[in-house]
Design a protein around this nucleic acid. Structure first.
Lengths: 290, 290
DNA sequence: CTGCATGCATGCGTTTTTGCATGTATTGCA
DNA sequence: TGCAATACATGCAAAAACGCATGCATGCAG
């Protein structure tokens, strides 16, 4: 029975941040997981590593020792990564990504930024499309899709679950909060061309103000105060001026997947992109669900 | 999405041994687990780490790179362990272990040897008893027990599952193999004072030669050729001169536990002993089951 | 050439790990 | 003093990791 290297890394992270939550954020897991790993490390080593204080985890001396040595291990890891990077030819050539426009504008920009920073020799092409491109014809190398299944012939990875909810601008939100009986104007997506079904009973007066086939336009309409729009929560939450209104409780919505060729899936370029992508998704999962 | 440190360690181990099975043995897990960790590492890094040959896993150059850096990390880990050892006062004082005699003689000797080597300042007392000592009265600090539950008031850890089977010396085994109708003489434990129930139909002639209340004596009887004895498989397999005979198919038998005071359970001394113990159990699990 | 041993791939059921929901304590601020 | 925010503990359900059984390929000894 030996101590796990990942548990040493966890101890180091808690020493660094002083809190479970901080370490959890750094490592991209839930803080309860951190707590359990610490407990496991303590049991394995037979040492008391942290004092549990209301304001955080206070490291004992052995914990500081572990952190110092884990830091050395971390440096070895970083050296390794540099070596591996330089060993192969630097990643270069083209890479074509396709994703729904609103996902790109409201969520993926940091991914694109980090990726182009990390791999400056890759020529990244971004195709902002709501229609599904044919990856088998190389219309794109990798795609982000909102659907319930990854597709049969392609390789895929489920990145995020998400919900929809109702959003409006601050004025309307205030009006609704103060008078639940006020008339609620809806801007509906033509694909779901009727009022959402489980409308909260607390808001009896609803009418359809307009239909629209483009979600970007609907977001603008909501900002301009034309009414309430049902949209994926990540859009409403990351659009300035919009706040959630309780008219429609959060609803399930198809997941977000990353898919690609089975052939190219394991290639260094696609793997590199996925790593950046998955990290960002893990760190922001709460943005997408109720 | 970052590479797991434990996966780096796994890659290093496979590079060292050249086979999944070798690495699995070193790390104390099943070889399929090793295969999955390697695959995961390859997917995470986007690199082909090993050529799968029929005679083993042949490392590629990036795998050798990983192994070299993981070796550095391993040295840091060893430094850490030395530091932690020396930081606290060296473990000393008394430690009393109790265990069934046959488990001690046939399986635990390497544990005792390794532990006393590692912690020369601890005075280890071994009480070889088949009766259950009262740990709450400090008759012993830690106990190995063969039972179906760890006990209520004590802390416990299930170490091993095990089976019983029928064993005899080579002469008798040969006779049975050549003539299934030969008379089979049983030496029975007084606690289960009748012929085992699911006797194989292929061996119709059985009789009871003697009863005995002590398993050590029964083992000697089997060695001397007095007949067939049902015993835990680890005993039969680790006794020179005994071989398994198919008269009685392997039967379930209570698990092996290590138990101790809840208060002392987390203490450095007991933890140190458990670590040595668990390592030895993991490496020899196959000795105990059919 | 056959039998046997070693090593690996794959599908299935179980165990372990992880995440989530709820509840408590403390701090800071109104 | 009361309310919101932060940090943690704990019980439960979902997800991931793991071990095992089976089957195939190769190498070696008889």
């Amino acid at each position: 029975m030996q101590i796990s290297w990942d548990d040493l890394k966890t101890v180091m992270s808690v020493v660094r941040h002083g809190t479970l939550s901080g370490a959890a954020q750094e490592l991209g897991v839930n803080y309860t997981t951190i707590a359990r790993r610490i407990r496991r490390a303590e049991e394995t080593l037979g040492l008391h590593l942290f004092d549990r204080l209301p304001e955080g985890y206070q490291p004992t001396e052995p914990a500081l020792n572990i952190a110092a040595h884990a830091h050395q291990m971390e440096m070895s890891e970083h050296n390794l990564m540099r070596t591996l990077q330089q060993a192969g030819p630097p990643l270069s050539g083209g890479l074509t990504l396709t994703a729904p426009p609103l996902l790109l504008t409201h969520f993926l920009m940091p991914v694109v930024e980090a990726f182009t920073d990390l791999y400056p020799n890759i020529d990244l092409t971004v195709l902002a499309r709501n229609d599904v491109l044919d990856l088998t014809r190389r219309e794109a190398d990798i795609a982000l899709r909102i659907s319930t299944s990854p597709g049969d012939t392609l390789k895929g990875l489920r990145l995020l679950e998400q919900n929809t909810a109702s959003f409006a601008n601050a004025d309307i939100a205030n009006r609704i909060a103060q008078d639940p009986d006020t008339m609620i104007n809806w801007v509906l997506y033509t694909l779901h061309a009727k009022l959402p079904s489980p409308l909260s009973k607390a808001f009896p007066n609803n009418r359809i103000r307009m239909y629209c086939d483009d979600m970007s336009t609907m977001v603008s309409a909501a900002q301009a105060g034309l009414g309430v729009v049902r949209m994926p929560m990540f859009i409403g939450r990351s659009t300035t001026g919009l706040v959630q209104v309780p008219v429609l409780p959060p609803q399930p919505y198809p997941d977000i997947w990353v898919v690609g060729h089975a052939d190219l899936w394991a290639s260094p370029k696609l793997t590199a992109f996925r790593n950046v992508l998955v990290t960002h998704c893990k760190a922001n999962r709460a943005l997408f669900v109720a």
